[in-house]
Design a protein around this nucleic acid. Structure first.
Length: 631
RNA sequence: GCCACCGUAGCUCAGCCGGUAGAGCGGCGGUUUUGUAAACCGCAGGUCGGGAGUUCGAGCCUCUCCGGUGGCUCCA
């Protein structure tokens, strides 16, 4: 922030026209102003100030008080003046900063005149001209000392008191406490993962130190890799990885449409100045990617919320149409996570997020609909290849008030889940929701990552002006549910790979579910004499992802290669098989080696993949034609 | 963002006290034509992550930037 201090006999201004379209209309008394014998402060808010409006405003006021004291001024004028800096703050944050300065100065003994922000003004100043009457200062955002004073929002969060419980399927409640770093208050026997999850959440325990296994696997399997040419947390997907991701995307989307959601598509970037977005944004100023468009500054979306809320804002909705769901799969959502927080596929800066918002007439309908979506998500994860509910641990977050008023709902949820779950109870509502749940995957390094999540949002309908008309013809704000049925697609891949890593440790062959296996069947001729026969067989495997190892290596080597690729059905074709018309197949899931006819293999795959999307092999069918993406 | 560790051939890694770079796999050429997790021989392949510094001389020491991992903070 830059400030030019002028100790003046007189300041007089008159508003001419708006300089910013978003500037608010002014009451007549604000359109002109005059102050005599005052310290006039011309101020430019700069880009670097955006991260901490509270802090910079506090510093500004401190400086103003300081200078005013020196020149013995009792009156102060604040004059937003863009021309002191070449690195201006965006107008949203700037406006907020000026508001805060005015508010804080108002609490001092000074008489304050604040000229409006966002307008062209004509003005007159007459500077006193004594040695101290002209002075400029640069004020930088909170140094270490200033940062200790938390912003209002952070203070509110700090006041937030969390209580932790285990809720059993019976509804029995067990208050948890930390006892020497260990979670106590519940017998976790038989619920080892829940203990790990509770300890991750409550004690912030980080027990392991290795790289997560999936980070290595994703590269070894030629699925996904880091991209040093981009920004951290923006990954590259090779052909096989794109296939897996594409299939998951299709599956989730199909299930959401079957559920009844209306798929929409919204922009990836939004205008900083858009009034509906500002209050939402200002609370989390440092999290976005900023992009400079030809004529404005925009931010990249960090979820599908805005896009869908802005659509919902313009929709005409009757209570008869509720509940009503909008769905979008964002490719991508962007969050400028701190460097140290990124972790391969678990935590990214650019990720693919299915997001489904349901507008509900009232709390009753919201609770009912939440459980409908619970079933959709449960089935989706189960059909993807997870064990439900064993692969996940529920984190449920509620306000105390919600819990006490809706105990039956919480208990019904716990009964449906069928296993004990972790509940965090907040003393008061700090976030926009009163109820939220996540299904967390606990990985080999004992880290928890949320996949499925749904929330009951009581605030954003008001904030974004989303309304429906009720039976009496009155406009009402709906409750909004925020469901991500699977969580980020990359995170689903992470969980599947981490699950496979558990199998490696347990000594069972790791694999992806057959419907996601990049190659489902590999044909390996014992010698090149069987190649023509294999070529013919390929035609029989239409509708599955089959390929042919025609590299001419030894059988041992070819089998090893196929095993390392986690191929579920490896079919060896030698002299015997050509004569009998059968295949000798290694079935990965059962470790069996048995003689099967091609039709049987097809039936097995059809059974494994029933109801899931299919995509053809996105690679050359003959290995001799296939490049390696990495060594 | 802070602290620590790491970055050498496409991949996985070795490289001593600072003296000018090595293996295996993969690729290419040849021999072999194989019955269920790596046949054999040969060849090519390196700004030692980028930049700056110290030094007669830097993969090795110093600074800085980039990338990765772990911890902290964070996760709307």
């Amino acid at each position: 922030m830059r400030v030019l201090f002028l100790h003046c006999d007189l300041l007089e201004y008159e508003v001419r026209e708006k300089a910013l379209p978003s500037a608010e209309d002014l009451p007549p008394e604000k359109r002109r102003g005059r102050i005599e014998d005052a310290l006039v402060c011309f101020i430019s808010a700069e880009h670097e100030d955006e991260g901490d409006p509270e802090g910079i405003a506090r510093e500004a006021v401190r400086n103003i008080e300081d200078v005013a004291q020196q020149v013995k001024a009792t009156r102060v004028a604040i004059y937003p003046y863009a021309h002191l800096s070449s690195s201006l703050a965006s107008s949203g944050p700037a406006k907020r900063i000026f508001g805060l300065i005015e508010e804080r100065l108002g609490k001092t003994q000074f008489e304050v005149l604040a000229s409006p922000f966002g307008y062209y003004k004509s003005f007159t100043v007459r500077v006193k001209g004594h040695p101290l009457s002209e002075l400029s200062r640069e004020i930088h955002p909170a140094g270490a000392a200033a940062r200790e004073e938390a912003s209002e929002a952070v203070k509110a969060e700090q006041k937030l008191v969390s209580e932790w419980f285990i809720v059993e399927p019976s509804g029995a409640l067990h208050p948890l406490r930390l006892d020497g770093g260990m979670v106590a208050g519940f017998d976790f026997a038989g619920h080892e993962n829940l203990r790990k999850f509770a300890s991750y959440e409550m004690a912030k325990s980080r027990e392991a130190k290795e790289e997560p296994p999936h980070a290595r696997l994703m590269r070894e399997l030629e699925l996904v890799d880091y991209e040093p040419g981009s920004d951290p947390g923006n990954l590259r997907f090779y052909a096989k990885g794109r296939l897996v991701k594409g299939l998951l995307e299709e599956f989730v989307t199909r299930r959401m449409i079957e559920y009844g959601a209306m798929e929409v598509e919204s922009p990836v970037m939004y205008d900083f100045e858009h009034p509906a977005l500002q209050s939402y944004l200002n609370r989390f100023p440092a999290r976005q990617y900023i992009v400079q468009t030809p004529n404005k500054k925009a931010f990249l979306r960090f979820s599908a919320c805005f896009g869908q809320f802005l659509i919902a804002h313009d929709m005409v909705i009757s209570y008869k149409q509720l509940p009503l769901s909008l769905y979008e799969l964002t490719r991508y959502s962007f969050r400028a996570e701190q460097r140290g927080e990124l972790a391969a596929l678990r935590r990214l800066r650019a990720f693919t997020m299915p997001d489904c918002h349901a507008l509900c007439a009232d709390l009753g309908q919201a609770k009912e609909q939440l459980m409908v979506r619970f079933e959709v998500a449960w089935k989706l994860l189960e059909d993807t290849g997870f064990r439900m509910p064993e692969d996940f641990e529920v984190g449920m977050r509620v306000t105390k008030e919600f819990y006490e008023g809706n105990m039956e709902f919480v208990n019904a949820y716990a009964r449906r889940w069928g296993r004990p779950l972790l509940m965090e109870q907040w003393s008061h509502q700090f976030f926009y929701y009163v109820f939220k749940y996540e299904w967390n995957f606990v990985d080999a390094n004992l880290k928890a990552a949320a996949l499925t999540t749904d929330q009951i949002d009581t605030e954003n309908a008001k904030r974004f002006g989303i309304t429906y008309t009720d039976a009496e013809g009155k406009e009402r704000h709906p409750y909004i549910l925020h469901l991500s049925p699977s969580g980020a697609i990359e995170r689903v891949m992470y969980a599947l790979l981490e699950k496979a890593a558990f199998d490696i440790d347990a000594g069972t062959p790791p694999m992806l579910p057959t419907w996601l296996a990049p190659v489902q069947v590999r044909l390996i001729p014992v010698s090149k004499d069987q190649l023509p026969h294999c070529e013919k067989l390929l035609a029989e495997f239409s509708g599955v992802r089959a390929d042919l190892d025609d590299l001419g290596d030894s059988l041992n080597k070819s089998v090893r290669r196929a095993e390392k690729e986690w191929i579920p059905y490896i079919a060896v074709v030698g002299k015997k098989e050509v004569e009998s018309g059968s295949l000798t197949v290694r079935v990965r899931s059962t470790k069996e080696q048995k003689s099967m006819r091609p039709a049987e293999v097809m039936e097995n795959i059809a059974r494994d993949t029933e109801g899931r999307p299919f995509r053809p092999l996105p690679l050359p069918i003959r290995l001799s034609k296939r490049p390696t993406f990495r060594g």
